[in-house]
Amino acid sequence: MKRRRINPKVVAFVAVLVLSLVLAFFTGWNRPWLTKPEALWQDLLAPLESGVTTITQAGKDFFEGFTKYNRTKEENLLLQKQVEELTGELYLLEEYRLENLRLRSLVNFEASFVDQRELLAAKVIGRNPSNWRKTFTINKGRIHGLQEGMAVVTTKGVVGRIGILGERSAEVLLILDHEGALGGMVQNTRFPGIVEGTGDDKIPLQMVQLPYDSLVREDDIIVTSGLGGIFPKGLPIGYVINIIPESNGLMKKAQLLPFVDFDRIEEVLIVLPEKGEE
């Protein structure tokens, strides 16, 4: 009986396929290092991305100038009124702030993180090319003092953490990504839980592992708990829009909407470690 010859090209094909998957398996979770070619490749694309993003943004701004003129006009009137109101409020708040400082020094309270931490601003120059992972690229990297795992925020709330680090660019792993889970807690009841991405565009975040009797209600604000050491305590994450029981009946989970509009982020702030901490 004649043995069927196996095409060596097919053998090579299957071998490469399997090797790729093995490689993928070993480079999957929490890689501590980034190989030279990867860092080089990322840095090579970064300036190109930066240029195109600048042009796109300019084009978008230009056209929005026309389409949004009327809305801008109305908004302007409204804002002027608000400025007047808020200026008044500001004086009052300044009084409170000074009072707060005095009282805090009295009780020797720890200052909130914004006073202690140094922030570094960075521009978002590119988004993730795939539909699966939720990351974007910023124009600051190792030479600007960034380290893996540093928290990335905006003035509205938590964005994510530094993932893969290049020399002059870095990937930010968003909290929407399934790898970007973080410790959160309900702001008013201080009830802790884990906040993770759902992969769903409409309800991007959920807080899981809440005991059935836990005190979480709709419209509750969720802030970071500071557990895990990456994010400072008390940063706003999002608010609860719905609470659903888990299938086992013992737990429930809260569906959250984030405060940060992830589609429209252009600049972010990176929280540098406290001095002397490193």
Partner: peptide, 11 residues
Amino acid sequence: EDLLLGRFVGL
């Protein structure tokens, strides 16, 4: 594409 993403290289 994988090298740019840096995770699950080969996928």
